[in-house]
Write a protein that binds this DNA or RNA. Structure first.
Lengths: 166, 166
DNA sequence: TGACAAAGTTCCAAAAAGGAACTAACATCA
DNA sequence: TGATGTTAGTTCCTTTTTGGAACTTTGTCA
């Protein structure tokens, strides 16, 4: 399977990976959420090669994840800001931040802490059920075919039981 | 910045990406959550080249994300199962699945649906505040330096305001 | 005029991924 | 006994993607 084929897979994870399936894409998005907006600042902060950065920004703009807006004319300069589509990638980033805090700590504690302004507390992000609000345990979730799964793709489903956990 | 340097960054997202910062890693994990366990089955389902698959499985085992357990002797055969560390990557995958369902739908609807066994409903995963339980809006979250952020890394913080959103 | 800045682009070398065939260690079948 | 099959890899070579550094364009400022 090639890069290009990912967005045609009957799997929302694979389709999402067609945009964020490499480390630079996600680090660029991380910086977007930290309010970085300009080419030079992404480059300075990330240390990414300039043509890779240019490529990723272009792809994000084409995908509607970032929008490229002029902040001055003569010479024209643009900055990159998250669209709604981009903003909704926040849970992906927060899930990674949470896992890194839990499992990649070098002993110094978390590099960043997050405060939820509405309630005022430091928090950790928790993935919850939209219906009952309880935290999700992978062993308590059952996978079922959805309308977007072609009948010939049914082998993508879990083999024996219908339960997606270890 | 090279691959290897990622896990030394003072950023939990970057550290997490040192394991899941490529598409095959995440697709392998997706299949793990769908109860795929054996080399041949990963290979058949993913279409990934065999040596890439072997490499990713080895890295996951070394990282403690998967464990390699024998399921028969003579000849010895092993299968790969998620550890607790691996299971806790579930929110990352679910966040991607959710975003793909919302933004990469080809018109056919979601390929998979998820049912929360404790409450019995189909659901979507929602990232919530651990303290108040409310869904997280990126614009309502403030970032602060944590104990693991060296003073020389303070420039990683948001530039002007302390608010990580667009 | 010369230096500086932002946002890219170009060129070449190095690293990673794709593709296909090959290997090891057994089991089973004719 | 030899041929074939299965699982889990490994090896070799080609193609694609990155990394690194220099260069370009369009304009400002001193």
């Amino acid at each position: 399977m090639k890069w290009k084929a990912l967005d045609a897979e009957p799997c929302s994870i694979a389709r999402t990976l067609s945009f964020v399936g490499d480390r630079w894409s996600l680090l660029v998005l991380r910086d977007c959420f930290l309010r970085v907006r300009r080419f030079e600042e992404f480059q300075r902060r990330l240390g990414v090669t300039r043509h890779i950065l240019a490529d990723r920004l272009k792809r994000f703009v084409e995908a509607g994840i970032l929008s490229r807006v002029a902040y001055q004319t003569s010479p024209e300069r643009h900055e990159y800001v998250l669209t709604q589509k981009g903003l909704e990638l926040y849970p992906v980033l927060m899930a990674m931040a949470r896992w890194g805090d839990a499992w990649m700590d070098d002993g110094a504690g978390p590099p960043l802490r997050y405060r939820h302004r509405p309630c005022g507390h430091h928090f950790t992000p928790v993935m919850c059920c939209s219906e009952c609000g309880e935290p999700l345990d992978p062993r308590a979730v059952t996978v079922e075919p959805g309308p977007g799964l072609g009948s010939e793709d049914a082998q993508l489903l879990p083999p024996a039981r219908q339960n997606p956990a270890s």
